[in-house]
């Protein structure tokens, strides 16, 4: 049973080849920790896997089927957390979270999701007044929403999710990821090492992206 595999994947940004000939495979219930220097293409790889960027060459398969055959189905199985926190500053934490939940056709059960990242008390606070770490927690709470809904996304693509988080929040994130893996989910996480890597150890494979490029 395969989860996600790529075959000779290449990505070009502007006029520069970011990576090429990339082959990775992640089984269900496993996480892949991406490492690599700045500019090595971790973010680009995650965006290609999410379908946000087109691959210049190669293909991506989910359970043996090319994702290009049904892009809508692929988008439905992806939960993407990028560099930035997509929050509207004048909306409260609950409103922000509920909007994304509804837009993705999920139940807006924000209370439990906020609780999972220990920001339930901030539900009625406009995002403007949240600290950087709290914003990140709110962004990550989207993952909890998907986790608690029946047909939640099975492929998590997290781009340096631990940035700005205190050790407590990193544990909460790790617990969420581990719970996701235990229900046969797949997670691909870019990191620069640190506590998250240790907490996921034993459930994760490692891939250094610079080593994968020619």
């Amino acid at each position: 049973m395969q989860g996600l595999t790529t075959h000779d994947l290449a990505c070009i940004r502007g006029e520069r080849a970011v990576f090429a000939g990339l082959n990775i495979a992640v089984n269900p219930g496993r996480a892949l920790l991406l490492s690599g220097a700045n500019g090595s293409g971790k973010s680009s790889l995650l965006r290609v896997l999410a379908g946000l960027l087109p691959a210049a060459e190669g293909r991506i398969e989910w359970e043996g089927t090319d994702i290009a055959e049904d892009p809508d189905a692929h988008r439905a199985r992806v939960a993407y957390v990028g560099h930035m926190d997509p929050l509207k500053l004048s909306m409260t934490a609950t409103e922000n979270l509920a909007f994304w939940a509804r837009l993705y056709g999920m139940e807006p059960e924000t209370e439990a999701a906020l609780h999972q990242f220990s920001i339930a008390a901030l539900g009625d606070v406009p995002a403007r007044y949240l600290s950087a770490g709290q914003k990140r927690r709110l962004n990550l709470a989207r993952l909890a929403i998907g986790q608690n809904s029946p047909a939640g996304p099975s492929l998590w693509l997290l781009d340096e999710p631990a940035t700005g988080l205190d050790p407590g929040a990193v544990s909460m994130l790790a617990n969420s990821i581990l719970a996701h893996l235990s229900s046969e989910g797949v997670a691909i996480v870019s990191t620069h090492g640190g506590r998250l890597d240790e907490l996921l150890d034993g459930h994760a494979d490692r891939f250094s992206i610079s080593a994968g490029a020619p």
Binding site: V78, G82, M84, P86, K88, W100, L103, Y104, G105
Partner: peptide, 17 residues
């Protein structure tokens, strides 16, 4: 512009809408 700057546009694109 604001959805482009804060990454919301990516999520809007990935949504079923």
């Amino acid at each position: 512009a604001s959805d482009h700057e804060d990454g919301s546009l990516d999520l809007l694109y990935l949504s079923p809408v």
